[in-house]
Amino acid sequence: MYAFDYQRPAALADAAALLKADPEAKILAGGQTLLPTLKQRLAQPTALVDLARLPGLSAIEKTAEGVAIGALVKHAAVATSDVVRAAIPALADLAGLIGDPAVRNRGTLGGSLANDDPTADYPAAVLALNATVVTDRRSIGAGDYFQGLFTTALEEGEIITRVDFPQVERAGYAKFRNPASRYAMAGVFVAKTADAVRVAVTGAGQSGVFLWEEAGDILASDFSPAALARLELDPADLMSDLHGSAEYRAQLVKAMAKRAVAKALA
């Protein structure tokens, strides 16, 4: 790691002020991606602004629409939350599939979304559920939030404070993991509301998480794994790397979509 200064602000406004004063400073939440990045000297921030002790960012709350999860809530807490389990069980399932138990004890929802790794799990849930990312400045709909590989609508120094997840009729998440990295090679989150189905895919797209709209349209009229049998996903926009070709990933996405629907129906 290159050297950096360490700041631990006591209030959100102080954190925002520190980030505004130093554009080269970076936010530290759980550090499960940032610290490995720094260890490889792939980034050289002047300072880390540690949000971990900020009040008000660590709650899970039932809301009229669904569930609100604070940006600093750890994956392990989402996975074991009775509130999340009751409102959106698929979201708790997803959190329990991130990394491994020790990583889940440190990694945070806000950190995952701010980083927007194309193979991360949470972006699939946020996009399929059409959740709202709330920051210290505004609310950003999922459709506007994700803008490509490691690229989001967040501005310089903007801090995610919570995510509002709306409850849906049914939802399911299925993931095919890379056995070494534990990231998704294909992860599919299916969310069914009264009038539509949204199918979000992570781990496979060249530009990060995306909505598989054809699958959503078919599932809206026939919400069953069998309904996807005749559908093919075009591999043109999918990732090809040493772990698998785009064609292989297209098959994985379809298989995971079927499993996600089956889980939603279970």
Partner: peptide, 27 residues
Amino acid sequence: CDTSQCGACVVHVDGAAVKSCTMLAIQ
């Protein structure tokens, strides 16, 4: 491994297992 894969560095912090190679002492 020093890359949070192998778990040889697991310790408990406030009762929760963490990979101590992927946490700053100041945290």
